[in-house]
Design a protein around this nucleic acid. Sequence first.
DNA 1: ATGGCTACGATCCGTAGA
Length: 255
Amino acid sequence: MKLATWNVNSLKVRLPQLIDWAAATQPDVVCLQETKLEDGKFPQAEIEAAGFHAAFSGQKTYNGVALLARTAPRDVVTSIPGFTDEQKRVVAATLGDARVVCLYAPNGQAVGSDKYAYKLRWYDALRAWLADELARHPRLAVLGDLNIAPEDRDVHDPKAWEGQVHCSAPERAAFSALLALGLQDAFRLFEQPEKSFSWWDYRMMAFRRNAGLRIDHILLSSALAAQCGACSIDKAPRKLERPSDHTPVVAELRP
DNA sequence: ATGGCTACGATCCGTAGA
């Protein structure tokens, strides 16, 4: 079983790339972020034609998440329980015997800003919810654009980014707190190339200079981590015309 | 050098992303 996460930065613009990529990669589950589409405008027919069921929660212009799966999603949830939020950042569902949570974490803008405070509040609520989810579902996968580079090796220029949003100590503590629940960073279960990133700024030829961050993640409970045979970043879509600034991360689970 | 792209919805520029 192949699980993937991809911040597509507009599903409308990236739909053809998503369809091509899914045909080539054959994932069983795809978590999408920044769909930027109201639910009424979700491309249901195209996604179905590509062989996926879909659960989604979107809004105009900003945010929006979707969970694509070969099997019908059950028990769909589209918010962190008890955390009131206008912003559509969460969709979770049960797929077969696994619980899958798709997340688009707040960006945080700048350390000390209102958006940064919201990001940390959001992470607090997320941790409490995932603790609950883990207790209920030992086979739990959490995928998404978490907007945190957990370690310096996840940053192209750790000095320049030191203490900045995505890298600040409170954000890294929030990421660690998820791992402390019993989740594992699937990417780090394996030897990886140095300077592996999942996002590159559109400006300054950042992709060509590999000036990126690893902020898109797949976290697995122990039961799923034990089955994980590979996890990699697929840079191919970032090389296409009109790419998303993020690229997919894929994990493979053995039966 | 604090910009530099891109997407969006509103115009012909502002907001947001990270």
